[in-house]
């Protein structure tokens, strides 16, 4: 069985032929496209290490069948930075020590990028303590066994506020 699959990955058209309909988006990215930034921690949608954006929304790549996503646009951690210039969320994770071992980090970062977009689209702010609670809840689909949650939350809040301020200046 060979199944053609067209994806746009990090803005680039990637055509591939799957030998098998069982391939998940995560395994297509990691094993077929050699984009190993997205991690497999549980393969069951229980840890969030595989989080990527599909058509702009964060999902668990391990629970999505690649064939079903034919034509979709996928953003992974590899596509965030602009050359050597880190995406603000990436920079914030370093500045706030939002990781230790780094294994869950690509998923955390993609989840954070997705969360910030969701909050922006919903007109939600990150101005006060309640919003920090909102970030904590919004990042709860990403387990971190090292226990770097405090830094993760700080990083996401800082990146979201910076983006909001930049948006205000631009407006």
């Amino acid at each position: 069985m060979s199944i053609p699959l067209r994806l746009t990955v990090n803005g680039e058209r990637r055509d591939l032929v799957l030998e098998d309909p069982r391939v998940t988006l995560l395994d297509a990215l990691r094993e077929r496209l050699h984009l190993t930034g997205s991690k497999k921690g549980c393969d069951r949608g229980q840890c969030g290490a595989c989080t990527v954006l599909v058509d702009g929304r964060r999902i668990n790549a391990c629970l999505a069948l690649a064939v079903s996503l034919d034509g979709a646009s996928v953003e992974t951690v590899e596509g965030l930075a602009n050359g050597d210039a880190l995406h603000p969320v990436q920079a914030a994770f370093i500045a706030h020590d939002g990781f230790q071992c780094g294994f869950c980090t690509p998923g955390q970062i993609m989840s954070a990028v997705g969360l910030i977009r969701e909050m922006r689209e919903a007109g939600e702010s990150v101005g006060d303590a309640a919003d920090v609670e909102r970030v904590r809840e919004g990042m709860s689909g990403n387990l971190c066994r090292c226990g770097a949650y405090a830094g993760i939350t700080e990083a996401v809040v800082a990146a979201a506020r910076a983006e909001a301020q930049a948006g205000e200046k631009a407006a």
Partner: peptide, 21 residues
């Protein structure tokens, strides 16, 4: 200091064992 390997970890370029192909 921030982590020296930080830029590799936040960009997905830090290669863990399962990333070896």
């Amino acid at each position: 200091l921030t982590r020296r390997e930080g830029p590799l970890k936040v960009t997905g370029r830090a290669l863990f064992a399962a990333d070896t192909l």
